[in-house]
Nucleic acid binder design. Structure first.
Length: 586
RNA sequence: GCGCCCGUAACUCAGUGGAUAGAGUAUCCGCCUUCUAAGCGGACUGCCGUUGGUUCGAAUCCAACCGGGCGCGCCA
């Protein structure tokens, strides 16, 4: 359908040139979807924009453009409305031919990128020896969705997990374990992640209360950082233990190909990052720390705010690591686009890091960089989500609970409908619905807004939810079972014929998939995909309601079967890009 | 104090320069002898936080203010 937009654009532009001459050769034809279906399918407000520079009333401009306009077989004759809108309506025959063209296209008419890019997506980033929580959920699933969209568009995507696996807290933890649970430092599986979290909390308390323990913790940091074999081995065990717990969550969320490159990965580069900044004359010593000052960043006294790249104790911090990551991803990974899916609270930090990276020349102008921020997940009280007792909610528990709730819902519905289904069926459907509901509830909102986490809402199976989408898909599969239809092997000469209004609506929507995905890749907003498939599911249900499929006359029957199949494929693709599982029956 | 984000229907949210501002939920009224009613149709609901400004045109851009969230020099 991109072809459609392109061809309309160029037609409008040619008409404008023909009517008003070469001054308009750089004009943007500003084609937009119609604001109201009654006006047609697309509109342009070009005449209103041109009125002032041309000193001609907009309506007259619109009429002159229309008189020169040749839209061939694509649109009905254009009309001028209101103050000077030009309304365009796609021809039925054109829609039919477009659908006939995409029905045998595995990509549903979405072209691959002409210039594939290397895209690095920084996502998830949990901390070793800590539980994953809802903040990681957002980063993980938003990042995964963005990664899948770029991949589908033909780009080369590298998903990176910037885990928190380094820093002073490990000294604390190791010192504590030496005292209370030395086996954890020498053998695998002596403790699980839950135990580690407890030890971590003990360590923190101990650290705050006991000066001699503080000293021991610091020595452990030094030993670890100097590469002491025993310390490194202990650290690796801790990391492995956490990694296994993370993997359970990733499996549940269907996240794969996530390359772990934690903070420790960048250790060997940090000194050089700082050195290069010095050589470039970008950093200065201030209160014993090495700092880079960039215009426009101020602290609470209104004084210039530094980006500290080496602390006064000689150690490096996360700014150094993040700078190293930018440099490495451009130099070694040869990235064309860097995406950091990190909560909105880090916006200032990333702005500063990117600014310094630009100054240092590590981020050339042709490399795009984007911090993809997202809002906080709140509890019913409007504060950051916590359990009743004030603890962080474990992501694993949250997902388990969603599956359990979905299972209860399913069981009671099956009983109501008098259906007898196997345990395997029940668990796999409950899992798909539970996980799908949590993901969809998150991805369907604009990622910038904070949202209130509510099982009741996200598992409610009505409205703009994953199950609604799954249900539309299941309905199509139901047709296939009932009519013994093999969608993959419909007669190749079969043609789409559109007659009913709901068929036309569904057809037009199906043809807008590529515009949608292009927008998602530009704006990095997964909720646009949700919006697209939600409207698709709605239009399908309307069609399903008013157009019999299996009982229709022969030409219509096959045409509608194709329409059903295209819808199912589009929903499947949309959900797949969102990372949401699908079921054939539910 | 400074910076960033947010403020749209009773509720949860779409909507970043165009025509009468849209969905879902909730509420109410209809529709199952016909492919799964987790559905469809209809009704109801709005000083788009406030006040100014820019513009032919503003929920959208600018300024100030009010209310909420987050961040702001050695944690990451």
């Amino acid at each position: 359908m991109k072809m459609t937009l392109e061809s309309i654009r160029s037609s409008i532009k040619q008409a404008a040139l023909a009517a008003f001459g070469k001054d308009l050769k750089d004009v943007d034809p500003s084609i937009a979807p119609a604001t109201n279906a009654a006006f047609g399918d697309y509109q342009t407000n070009l005449a209103l924009t041109l009125s002032k520079p041309l000193k001609i009333p907009p309506r007259a401009i619109a009429e002159q453009i229309v008189s020169k306009l040749d839209l061939g077989d694509v649109c009905e004759p254009p009309t001028v409305a209101g103050p000077g809108f030009i309304n365009l309506k796609l021809k039925r025959a054109y829609l039919e031919s477009q659908l006939n063209a995409i029905k045998s296209d595995p990509r549903l008419g979405v072209p691959k990128a002409a210039c594939p890019k290397k895209v690095v997506v920084d996502m998830s980033s949990p901390n070793i020896a800590k539980e994953m929580h809802v903040g990681h959920l957002r980063s993980t699933i938003i990042g995964e969705c963005i990664a899948r969209v770029f991949e589908f568009l033909g780009h080369d995507v590298l998903r990176l997990n910037h885990v928190g696996d380094w820093g002073t807290q490990f000294g604390m933890l190791i010192a504590q374990l030496k005292e209370v649970c030395p086996s954890a430092l020498t053998c695998a599986d002596a403790v699980n992640l839950g135990d580690l979290v407890v030890f971590y909390k003990q360590a923190k308390k101990h650290f705050d209360e006991d000066a001699t323990f503080q000293e021991r913790a610091r020595q452990e940091v030094v030993r670890l950082q100097s590469g002491d074999l025993e310390s490194v081995r202990a650290w690796q065990l801790l990391c492995d233990q956490s990694r296994r717990a993370f993997q359970d969550v990733y499996d549940l969320l269907d996240v794969h190909n996530l390359t772990e490159r934690g903070e420790s990965f960048y250790n060997p580069m940090l000194a050089d990052v700082v050195k290069e900044l010095e050589q470039l004359g970008l950093s200065v010593e201030d209160q014993g720390a090495s700092c880079v000052f960039v215009d426009g960043f101020l602290n609470e006294q209104g004084k210039p705010l530094p980006l500290i790249v080496r602390k006064n104790d000689g150690g490096f911090n996360y700014a150094t690591t993040d700078l190293a990551s930018v440099r490495y991803r451009v130099r070694q990974d040869k990235a064309d686009e860097l995406i950091y899916v990190v909560d909105a609270g880090q916006a200032a930090h990333f702005a500063q890091v990117f600014a310094v990276a630009r100054l240092a020349g590590w981020l050339p102008e042709n490399v795009k960089v984007a911090h993809v921020p997202f809002g906080v997940v709140q509890g019913e009280d409007g504060k950051k989500l916590k359990t009743r007792s004030g603890e962080t909610v474990r992501l694993q528990d949250l997902l388990d609970e969603a599956i359990t709730a979905a299972r209860q819902e399913l069981d009671s519905r099956l009983e109501e409908e008098g259906r007898d289904e196997s345990v395997e069926f029940r668990s796999s459907v409950a899992r798909a619905i539970g996980i799908g509901a949590v993901k969809y509830a998150d991805l369907s909102l604009n990622r910038m807004t904070n949202y209130v986490f509510s099982f009741k809402k996200m598992l409610s199976l009505q409205g703009n939810t994953a199950p609604y989408m799954m249900y539309a898909y299941v309905r199509v599969q139901g047709i296939s079972r009932k009519g013994d239809i093999d969608f993959e092997h419909l007669p190749s000469e079969a043609k789409i014929v559109l007659s009913e209004p709901t068929e036309l609506e569904l057809a037009k929507h199906l043809l807008r998939l590529d515009e949608t995905l292009e927008t998602v890749a530009e704006e990095l907003l997964p909720n646009r995909i949700c919006e697209f498939i939600f409207e698709l599911a709605q239009k399908f249900n309307q069609f399903y309601e008013s157009c019999p499929v299996l009982n229709a006359g022969e030409e219509e029957r096959t045409s509608r079967l194709i329409l059903c199949h295209l819808t199912a494929r589009a929903i499947r693709l949309g959900l797949c890009l969102l990372g949401i599982p699908l079921v054939e029956r539910m």
